[in-house]
Design a protein around this nucleic acid. Sequence first.
DNA 1: GGTTGACCTTGACGCTGCGTCAACCTTCGA
DNA 2: TCGAAGGTTGACGCAGCGTCAAGGTCAACC
Lengths: 264, 264
Amino acid sequence: MLTISQLASYAGVTVRAVRHYHAKGLLPEPERDSSGYRRYDAAAVVELVRIRTLADAGVPLSRVGELLTAGPEEFAAAVEEIDRRLRAEIRERQRHRERIGQLAAGDSLALPPEAVAYLDRLRALGIPERLVEGERDAWILVAAQLPEQMPFYIRSKSAQIEDPSVADFYRELDDVVDWAPGDPRLPALADRLVAQLESGGDAEWELPEDAMSDDLVRLLDSMFVSQVPVAAELMRLVEERGWTGWTRLERVDSARARRRHRAE
Amino acid sequence: MLTISQLASYAGVTVRAVRHYHAKGLLPEPERDSSGYRRYDAAAVVELVRIRTLADAGVPLSRVGELLTAGPEEFAAAVEEIDRRLRAEIRERQRHRERIGQLAAGDSLALPPEAVAYLDRLRALGIPERLVEGERDAWILVAAQLPEQMPFYIRSKSAQIEDPSVADFYRELDDVVDWAPGDPRLPALADRLVAQLESGGDAEWELPEDAMSDDLVRLLDSMFVSQVPVAAELMRLVEERGWTGWTRLERVDSARARRRHRAE
DNA sequence: GGTTGACCTTGACGCTGCGTCAACCTTCGA
DNA sequence: TCGAAGGTTGACGCAGCGTCAAGGTCAACC
């Protein structure tokens, strides 16, 4: 008669695994000797080897039991299904490999390549890193909600940023981030912003933002407000001058019209 | 401010996952409102999306934390290692697919093809199924211990079984399985067996068994004893006639010599 | 016959990434 | 004002064992 460790070593498994198979009901509990030790016969080795053969082929233990006693056709069906599962798992890892291969450090985490290129362009234009990161986070939010719209948005923004006055404005914003609420330069900033808005005949200024949901717009605005101390005050000043919002800047009356429209 | 379910839906994950990331320390716990609800800002959405991006690429959660703050070179190293793991997992499933594909129902579980062929040959020669299964189990034990010797053993056995007198003996054994201890036909059977042993000049009778360990031989003998009621008695009768064992039948004195040899 | 070391027993936690109750409190819309 | 919907913590479940823990047993050596 064999002890559990002898049984295990004949079958090439660990003692712990044997006990696990007992607990799972895959291998019947053998007789115990006077001291409570399990005692096995050679047939148990055969059973254990058969169990391991299936397990080594990727059969989940929960199905090993049925397969050991299955007829040829149920066996074939089960094998087919297990093979399907294995194929699916392989495909999953292959997708993971593709994705992780494309993940370089930094911006490309969670952003499509065109967005990364846009952010790099901002850096090349001398936009301070702090602002670029703010942009990056905003784009991450947009990309998560509207991935298929990203090329559209990015094309529009990429065109805008090539306008020197826009780029200048961005560069100045870096200082604004440090302003404290009540800073005396805020009204003038609001004036400049509104002037730029009203002069800007560029059609691109308004094109794609319409597709963004109000929720997303509010989310982006709130990020601006929470990252920049004077953001709320600036938005208030701008609103006094007839424009509302930040992510989607629009005339106050057209915002009202939008709300009416949505309410219908 | 966002509730947990709003946060989760912006990032495309479940509420449970968000809490899990809190528990794991991947996502910092936000402030609570007066009623104890978690309240998130937009930055939390960004963090969550970045976490999911890594997780979706197969990065284990335990490593996501470091990767989120890693520099380019550590990031690249980590990505390399994760990719290695993914490749290994893919190879593992591919091996599983190969093995499970070769697993038909029945004998081929845990046996190499040549052994399956041998068993099928037994069936073709009219050996009763019960004996074939006994053979199969014995071969499973041998294959588990000495897989690389299997072709050798099987060739030897396949040659033996083509001897009509050997095949006859096998067929008769089927009745013997049902004999009760003390059956009067046992002495005559022992005589016939010994006569066959002593007449058998076939060199194959003894060739490869020498490579089997004594342990394995004892295991196989014990299986014979536990499956066949008269086995022990038959072995005793055969031993009175100068031969010992079953799996490895040899003259009593040569068995003594073997033991002496092993003891040196 | 006592000690030592190897082996046996049951019980329980750990790992991975959440899903899924349970039991209870809060908020919100009709 | 009530019920549905959503929030909270706590805990179990899954797969397949690895790995202590705490103790009883066996075999061999002195």
